[in-house]
Amino acid sequence: MLAFATLLLACVTSSSVTAAGAEVAIAVVVGKGRAPATPLSPALVVGIFARKRQLWSDRSPILPVNLPASHPLRRNFSRWVFDRTPEEMQDYWNDQYFHGVLPPPVLASEEAVLRFVASTPGAIGYVSTCAVDRRVDVLAIVQSPDGAAPCPR
């Protein structure tokens, strides 16, 4: 009886994990008409948001912006791109601080990211694929290894 209950619990847990694994994908965006000729590779997404890449191909500065660490989209972005939570990334940023490199600043909401990216040359941010509109171009799609869930209606 106990073994059956354990097996049942394991099945329920497993199915719930799979269901929760697929989440809405994240779009890495720049202002309309400012997209580079080639889409960003996963390594370049890492490089830009880790501040290893600081110049666009025309030598203008790359200005990455983050969402707040508590924002669900930021947490997913950090896990999918860096395989670390925002808190676990702080060791890296503390190292960089002593080399004169500061982490990307934050904006409060996806709408703020869209407005800032749309109006600021060189700016790059990320929003839910469901929030993408005509103000921005999508450079890359970041999603969970479990796949992307459709936008909620």
Partner: peptide, 17 residues
Amino acid sequence: DPDLPVAEHIPDSPPTG
């Protein structure tokens, strides 16, 4: 101002100088 990016302040984040 919600339209201006600000430095992040979470536990263990580096100072902003």
